[in-house]
Design a protein around this nucleic acid. Structure first.
Length: 85
DNA sequence: GTTGAGCGTT
């Protein structure tokens, strides 16, 4: 089930909780994570949001894709899963 | 004190 979303174009200041708060009203979030740099721990400017259902993920994608967060336009799409079913 | 399309770690 595609309930995982890839979020790109994030501001450098955006964190996991920022993503969660941004996607929270659009659906029930299982996990929200902004990928940080392995060495510095700074934001890589993209992250992943997993919803409790694919319909919530789709609704959030349709709602948040090309939206503006932290004064920056973001790109939302289905994430490429590390394990495909 | 920086950068700007992309697809991660437990």
């Amino acid at each position: 089930m595609k309930n995982k979303l890839f979020v790109g174009g994030l501001s450098w200041s955006i964190t996991d909780d920022t993503l969660r708060e941004a996607f929270a009203p659009h659906g029930e979030i299982e996990e929200a994570k902004v990928i940080l740099d392995r060495n510095t721990g700074r934001s890589r400017g993209f992250g992943f949001v997993t919803f409790e259902s694919a319909e919530n993920a789709k609704a959030a994608m349709e709602a948040m894709d090309n939206a503006v967060l932290e004064e920056r336009s973001i790109h939302v799409d289905y994430a490429k899963e590390r394990s495909r079913d």
